[in-house]
Design a protein around this nucleic acid. Structure first.
Lengths: 183, 183
DNA sequence: ACCTGAACACCGTTCAAGT
DNA sequence: ACCTGAACACCGTTCAAGT
């Protein structure tokens, strides 16, 4: 790759990160190109679709999810406290960008989404936590990982579009925790 | 109101119902006007915002919610069966139009949304069901109506955008039911 | 090989001109 | 009082012309 192309690509990702954080994942791509000082054609050359750009934005996703799940598993207390700590971390992570919760959770089902690796990282992390719960004998039978991921994705999506803070989200996570754990 | 205005208004609602069912609540308004045989200005005169048109589309909402909650409360079995019957009815109702689940649930919080009466009807219906559960001593303490509404709205939104059928939705509703009822 | 920016398409919204 | 449709704005997307 030519040196100027390399620079443009990096600059686009950097600017897009900023713009998407400010105005949400549906922000005008014009603005990304303009602020990066390139023509719209250059943006499209590097990222043919909006999703391709989203994918680049979330590149640190996998490591972030891993570190958050590790942190949550070290929470003081029993299964319930660990599970809720993870749920809270996750919703916080997913609501960091406007529109991300819905898009990432939607790609849980379909194999061909560019966000596939991102949501898979989340699903894997959640499975780790659920398995730890199961090892403690704390998990109800018949609880499916994908269903829990979608429930949390739903909560995060609602929090995203109603601008709910952690305090408002917590009771919903309590209900899910109650539904997932033996009483 | 002049006779032709009356006719245009009715025709717009009828056509919009059709178009929104086919292409989702974000369908081009152009098409609504075109198919109704009126100029775009006429559409804007009757419905100044897209939300105003949505509001007209969901005019039968309140009665529908009422009839569904009545139906669900007549389900054979205990509290759990009734609750799940209601949850299923509601998600089905909310996913009837693409994009409706997210929009209606988002307006749960804000007082000034045109969809206010619609989501209020749902929240009231859900409260009726939860109170019936509480009267049977089946409800956990500290379960809040708004939280349950948002949880169900989240499930419906996920089902909407991942095209999940009732069969795929059911296990998520089971988790919520477990979380809401005493074990 | 890559970039630019004009050009086109699509759709939301307004408003002067009509009836 | 209401309708029409041209007109403008905004944004996504493409592509011929440049370097």
């Amino acid at each position: 790759m030519r040196a100027d192309a390399q620079r443009n690509r990096e600059r686009l990702i950097e600017v897009a990160h900023q713009v998407f954080k400010e105005r949400g994942l549906d922000a005008p791509l014009d603005e990304v190109a303009r602020r990066a000082g390139v023509g719209p054609g250059t943006l499209y050359r590097h990222f043919p679709t909006r999703e391709a750009l989203h994918e680049a934005i979330f590149s640190s996703w996998i490591e972030e999810v891993r570190s958050h799940v590790d942190k949550a598993m070290l929470t003081e207390g029993g299964s319930r406290e660990k599970l809720l700590a993870w749920f809270e971390e996750y919703v916080a992570l997913l609501t960091r960008n406007h529109g991300a919760a819905a898009k990432i959770t939607a790609s849980l089902g379909c194999q061909d989404s560019p966000l596939r690796t991102k949501c898979q990282a989340y699903a894997d992390a959640n499975e780790r936590v659920l398995e730890a719960m199961a090892d403690d004998g704390a998990l109800r039978e018949g609880v499916d990982n994908l269903d829990v991921c979608r429930l949390l994705g739903g909560v995060a999506t609602m929090a995203d579009q109603s601008s709910l803070d952690a305090h408002a989200v917590r009771p919903m996570l309590d209900v899910i925790a109650n539904g997932v754990l033996r009483s």
